[in-house]
Design a protein around this nucleic acid. Structure first.
Lengths: 230, 230
DNA sequence: GTCTATAGGCGGATAGAC
DNA sequence: GTCTATCCGCCTATAGAC
């Protein structure tokens, strides 16, 4: 009886994974706004109504894909940081930046799903908030280590931005200097800007050696958050 | 006969504009991948086949919308720069950054069309290249003025990036120091990263005073391209 | 959990009349 | 340039049998 239930649950997990895999392929081919349960079912040799036993709606499937994507890039960032454990904070910062870029180049459509255009008519539930913050939290950990150690320079913080920076710090970066929190949020957005330009084609006919270009930019961003070179 | 042809041409122009307007509304409601000639026609009280006299395919309509969007943001940037004529380069830089942000906040779906996720299956023809470079050219003009005048600091340029920076300069920024060209391309990508985070919802629960946040970031980006404060 | 069947839509693109 | 008609396809979601 237990083994039967176990087998059923394994089957359910496998089918769920197959649905998500196929949905990711459709995402690449059609874009998130055209993701269709029917097409996924057809490709899997199922009938569309059967899918509703796994995902109650198209939006729930989309949510699952979004959470998976955030977890995937978050895990990549955390793994890169773990591999760089013991290195100076600036080296950890750059390692995480490169890891995020590698992930994005390997998963361009999942990247587009989470950092590209929102899907009209879809509104992400709060379940996505946790996974979405994993990369940011990795950066916060690096900066906290730098701050507790000896190596964090204070970025400029205009008075007009101080209240906002203090609120952000209290909300999600307790213990960092507010100037660093604000600089980090900006740097993370800017990092994604570089990746979006590369992945979305804005660097066509403009930047050719994208790896070198990104490496330099990541170093500049490190500087901006208080991790200067040498 | 001339007046008749003139009237016909006017009618054609008006209908073309109406089609694009309606298509822009659909873009907002459905997303570019779901843009459909049929839905546009229905909304306009036309029959779908009539639209093919104006746009030979869905992709041609998309191209027209993309070119319009690039021209729209490009014109906004150029106008802001013109209004700041005579001001110091750094002030012009910041004025253009703010203008691009204002445009993006006013036209979020056109912003998403050009700087968000690419449309699967669609590949932009070379007609888009010219309009796409108007904002960048505005920034180049500002930096050239700063360079020819007395006020441009040289950003760092690692040796590994020098050949790339020299090629970029020769390709589209003749006359600028290569270090500035490279820094400008990075800054432009980073600026768009800030706007994408704001428009695509990544700043929800993170940044509240977005205007102040952006203003500070735009100033930091000016610094990065060689236009330090005071 | 999967199936068939159903309701009530939607799409791109073309041919040929007017 | 607009119309009708057509080809051939697609979609979300549900009901009810097995």
């Amino acid at each position: 009886m237990n083994t039967v239930r176990g087998a059923r649950e394994r089957a359910r997990i496998e089918v769920t994974a197959a649905i998500k895999d196929e949905a990711r392929r459709m995402l690449a081919a059609e874009g998130a706004p055209r993701l269709s349960l029917r097409a996924v079912a057809r490709e899997l040799g199922m009938v569309s109504s059967a899918l509703y036993r796994y995902f109650p709606s198209r939006d729930e499937l989309l949510t699952a894909l979004i959470i998976d994507a955030y977890d995937s890039v978050g895990a990549a960032a955390e793994a890169a940081d773990a591999r760089a454990a013991g290195a100076p904070p600036r080296a950890r910062w750059i390692a995480v930046c490169e890891a995020v870029r590698s992930w994005a180049l390997e998963h361009p459509h999942e990247y587009a799903l989470i950092y590209g255009s929102p899907v009209p008519g879809y509104s992400a539930p709060t379940d996505t908030v946790g996974p979405a913050s994993r990369v940011g939290n990795t950066f916060i950990g690096i900066l906290r280590a730098a701050y507790e150690g000896p190596g964090l320079a204070l970025p400029p913080l205009p008075p007009a931005l101080r209240p906002e920076a203090e609120r952000m710090t209290a909300d999600f970066a307790e213990g960092l200097p507010p100037a660093v929190t604000a600089a980090l949020v900006a740097a993370w957005a800017q990092l994604v800007g570089l990746l979006s330009f590369e992945l979305f084609g804005q660097f066509n006919r403009v930047v050719e050696d994208r790896t070198a270009f990104f490496a330099h930019a990541a170093g500049q961003l490190a500087h901006g958050v208080g991790l200067p070179a040498v």
